[in-house]
């Protein structure tokens, strides 16, 4: 369905935030934090950064927080009672100011969490989250959304897409049913948008590769050990790239609180050396190069084949966050150019 075009003034945007908060919604938006910009729970539009290229972390925390309770349990006199998590008590969330790549990432997360059997907690969180995206008027050398099916003004995944048209006015594209509902609730804050054309306001991001070509190359490269070692020698094997990534979903399950406690799900990363360690001491990925290979293979070869979704939306966060300057775009180009 063609998205409906409206407009909203910057001042009205701030009233919109107040409205959401007064309705009991939590608002997740980019905020200055030292010399960085990162998502945080905000209490007014004044806290929100509107002039950055990308945040350190992705907004995945809205649907996949770094720690969440799966259920709780109580034990007494040899009896155990398991208490299902009350999904109705999950907060309504509005994410404001995420980028089009971040909105697209929700589909990739959904492809993982709902593969075969639906993940109720993830799905319930997603259903209660409204994505009010702001299109990109600037990009940096790490952005490559256009190579993975997105773009600085792409609407896919967003509920509402805002584009800064200058002079304090935003074009508001109402994309989904959830977006229409949000716009309806906002009433007159959204005005008609006569003849607004966003194209000239958007950043240009050159296409760097085709994901099909990458997948085809990777298909042949699993055993190219030397290539992977050369590519990843400086990687120190932390979790930074996975934790800031909007589509990385590896997790751990941990119990806390003793016999009357909670079972928790928390972020994990296939980049950690012990992630795949067997109880026997055998580790199928004992080298960092194997783990780096897994990162690219999983996103660009395995996910497209198994979950019918690319595992990367080209946000460039992993490159920006990497302590040793592993630049994913450069590595993907190297894959595309590798002579097997």
């Amino acid at each position: 369905m063609e998205s409906e075009k409206r407009s909203i003034e910057r001042g009205a945007l701030s009233r919109l935030v107040e409205q959401w908060l007064s309705q009991g919604k939590r608002v997740l938006a980019p905020m200055h934090s030292g010399d960085k910009v990162d998502f945080a729970w905000v209490t007014s539009l004044d806290d929100v950064s509107l002039d950055h290229v990308q945040t350190v972390q992705s907004p995945k925390t809205a649907v996949f927080p770094r720690v969440e309770e799966l259920f709780s349990f109580r034990s007494a006199d040899g009896r155990v009672e398991v208490r299902e998590r009350d999904l109705g008590a999950l907060p309504e969330i509005v994410v404001l100011g995420l980028r089009p790549c971040d909105a697209a990432a929700m589909a990739a997360l959904g492809a993982i969490f709902n593969w075969d059997a639906p993940d109720r907690l993830f799905s319930a969180r997603l259903a209660r989250t409204t994505l009010v995206t702001i299109a990109c008027s600037r990009a940096d050398e790490h952005c490559f959304c256009t190579s993975v099916g997105g773009g600085p003004g792409a609407v896919a995944g967003s509920d509402i897409l805002l584009t800064d048209m200058g002079q304090g006015a935003y074009l508001a594209e109402i994309v989904s049913a959830k977006g229409r509902e949000a716009a309806r609730a906002a009433g007159p804050l959204f005005a008609p948008a006569p003849g607004m054309d966003k194209e000239s306001r958007l950043a240009t991001v050159a296409k760097a590769f085709s994901p099909d070509a990458i997948a085809a190359a990777l298909e042949r490269m699993f055993d190219a050990g030397g290539f992977w070692e050369e590519q990843s020698r400086r990687c120190v094997g932390c979790g930074a790239c996975a934790y800031v990534c909007p589509t990385c979903a590896c997790f751990d399950i941990q119990d806390e609180g003793g016999i009357s406690g909670q079972r928790l799900r928390c972020w994990d990363s296939c980049g950690f050396g012990l992630f795949t360690l067997h109880t026997s001491g055998h580790n199928p990925r004992w080298l960092q190069s194997q783990r780096w290979r897994q990162r690219l293979m999983h996103k660009f070869a395995y996910m497209p084949e198994r979950q019918q979704a690319l595992g990367c939306v080209g946000c460039g966060r992993c490159s920006r966050a990497c302590p040793v300057d592993m630049n994913i775009l450069e590595h993907l180009r190297a894959v595309a150019e590798a002579k097997p």
């Binding site: 934090s33 990162d38 972390q57 770094r66 120190v236 094997g237 932390c238 979790g239 930074a240 996975a242 934790y243 928390c266 972020w267 990363s269 950690f272 012990l274 966050a321 302590p323 040793v324």
Partner: peptide
């Protein structure tokens, strides 16, 4: 704000334990 990404540990030349206390 800590994510427990362990980038601090991985970047540290003196955090070389094969099995860190957190593990």
């Amino acid at each position: 704000r800590c994510l427990k990404c362990y980038a601090c540990r991985a970047a540290c030349p003196l955090c070389y334990c094969t099995r860190c206390t957190v593990e």
